[in-house]
Structures are given as C-alpha cells and as structure tokens.
Design a protein around this nucleic acid. Structure first.
Ligand code: FES
Ligand code: FES
Lengths: 152, 152
DNA sequence: TGAACTGCGACAAAAATAGTCCTATACTGA
DNA sequence: TCAGTATAGGACTATTTTTGTCGCAGTTCA
C-alpha cells in the first residue's frame, strides 16, 4: 500500500547525491547509477524528466551531466515525486476531470481527498536538503519504534 | 503515485455502507456489490479478509451477510487499508527486516520513514464514521481548491 | 573525427492487481 | 430433511503497471 515507484526513489536518491556533491560542476547519469547500483538507462530517463520540469540543468557532451537548478533546500520531495510519478493520487479513481464509473454511488472520494492533501503537505515539507542532512545528523532516527501496525 | 488499490477502495466503501445502514442486521456481499456496481466475488473476498482481521462479523445462510463488529467511529481507514493491502509502505524497499540491495548506498529510506509515519497518522485519524458522515454534512467539502499541484 | 554525454521513442520483461471459477461449508426456513 | 442462500477460500487467468532495454539522433569537447 502506498508504495513509491522505484523511479521516484531513484530520482530522490539522485537529487540527494547531487545535493551532497555541490563541488562537482555536473555529474553524469552513469556516475550516479554506478554509485547506487541502479540501471543507468533508467536513471537517465528519470533525470531527463527532472530536467524537463526544471529541477535539474543538463549539460550534454563530454564531462557533461546534471546539476541542481535550485538550492537543495528549496526542492521538495513532493516536486520530485510529482514530476516522476505524475499527479495521481490516493483513490483508485481520481482522474481529475474524468470521474470514475461508480461516481454517483461511491462517496468515499471526498474524505480521502483530504487525506491526499495531508500527505501532499508532508511531502512538501521535506526538502532534498533535509534528506541529505540526515546522515550527517548521526544515527538519530535509526531505531525509532514506528507505531504504525497497531491496526491488525 | 501513492495510489490505493481498488480492493482497499472497495473495502472502505463497503464499511461506509455498513456504517450508513445500522438498521439492517446484516448485509450480503452481493447487496453491497450491486449498489456500487463492483464485482461481487471480489468484494466478497475483501469482506472475508476484513472479517478475518475482526473488523466485521459474518453470518452465513439465508439473510446472512456482514455487520460491523465495532462502532464505525472506532474503525480507522488505516486499519482497513492495512488489513487489505498489507503493511507495506512508501519506499520501494521497506521489506521490514529484509533490507534492499542498495541498502548501504541509499540513505533515503530514513527520512522517508518519517513521512510514512505521518501518513499513517493521517489515515489513523480518519474513521469510517467520518467518511459516512461526509454526505450528510451538505456539500461542504465539494469545491475546495486542492492546492497540491504547485510543484510542476 | 570520435568518445562521452543527454534526449527520446518504441519495446520487452516482470511484477502487481484485478477479476473469475469452482468447490466446500454453514445456516435458514419451509 | 432438503432446497436455497450465503460465507470461506484456493487456484487460476486476465489486465495493467512498473521496470528495464535497445537503438538512434543530437551535443559538446578535445
Ligand atoms: S472510487 Fe471512483 S468515485 Fe470513489
Ligand atoms: S531504496 Fe532500499 S534502502 Fe533505499
């Protein structure tokens, strides 16, 4: 449930990498793919999309690659995920204008839309910078009890 | 991104239906499937699972069916979703104990775990009762601007 | 010129979801 | 006690989504 796609994951990882290497003028997709052990071509596509929406600046040719187009602090996880996975959301319908078949009957959409908002809010409140920060902040968050399975 | 499965949707819809019909002693899977126009057998399975985890009580035989085992107010969306879609969460890895291949390199997991918590919190804070309530509360939430696409 | 890049579109493979079928079992009421 | 209606659940297929690959065109730089 509520799984992020790998592409989004890859995208976040890549941005995090870039945020941690501000010295390098630009880093190639291959470089990042190698350090994380993920398929280069796939990552390339992800980075291309991020470039398209303006989160990255690309530079073709030798010693080319990507760099953040803004400060890591100003790029939210939401933006990244939205750029890669698209705007779709919680309920299985939610096609924006096009409403699903069970529209008249299903009244579940409304309350869930508010859940969406909350989630989007959380995602927006986390920046790439925050993520990059994490490992330098020692093992602070490592062993928290994640009280989220009480339901069953 | 972050899509709920249809099964979970169906489950929520069914519980909502039950919450709205407290008069009926028990409602059959077919009844609910018919009113919402969803595959009866599939809904049956969903209801069976909800019964198994104790959210519903089932009653076989003629005029049988399901009923809420607790007050709608005390059943959270989280419980329902968790029961149906399982405990899996945000990051593409997160197999609990089994950590993914890119474990040493990927440091993105930690911060995202906190996002998970927040989302779970939101889901836990919404009860079936809240959902059922929604339509009686007039068209209050209908035309809210959902400010969640600012990213792109 | 040629090596090392990005930028795309089309495909193929794999995995997750959605949905169906079939059989067994439980309860009800006539 | 028997027919009808309902849940329980395993096995299976179909569909969709996600993941990953290939090939080729354009760019930059030495
Ligand atoms: S599932 Fe489409 S309107 Fe609710
Ligand atoms: S994607 Fe598995 S540890 Fe980050």
């Amino acid at each position: 449930m509520l799984r992020l796609t790998k592409k989004a994951d890859y995208g976040l990882m890549a941005l995090k990498y870039l945020a941690e290497h501000p010295d390098s003028v630009s880093v190639s997709a291959k470089d990042i793919a190698d350090t994380y052990g993920i398929p280069p071509q796939l990552l390339a596509k992800v980075l291309q999309r991020l470039t398209k929406v303006g989160l990255l600046r690309s530079h073709a040719g030798m010693n080319g690659g990507y760099e953040l187009s803004r400060a890591a602090r100003s790029i939210s996880a939401f933006e990244v995920i939205h750029a890669i996975d698209g705007p779709l959301f919680i309920t299985s319908c939610t096609k924006g204008s096009k409403s699903c078949e069970l529209e008249p009957s299903c009244t579940i959409k409304e309350p869930l839309a508010r859940v969406n908002e909350s989630i989007a809010g959380v995602l927006k409140s986390i920046s790439i910078h925050d993520m990059a920060e994490d490992e330098s902040t020692s093992g602070r968050v490592t062993e928290q009890p994640l009280v989220m399975l009480t339901g069953s």
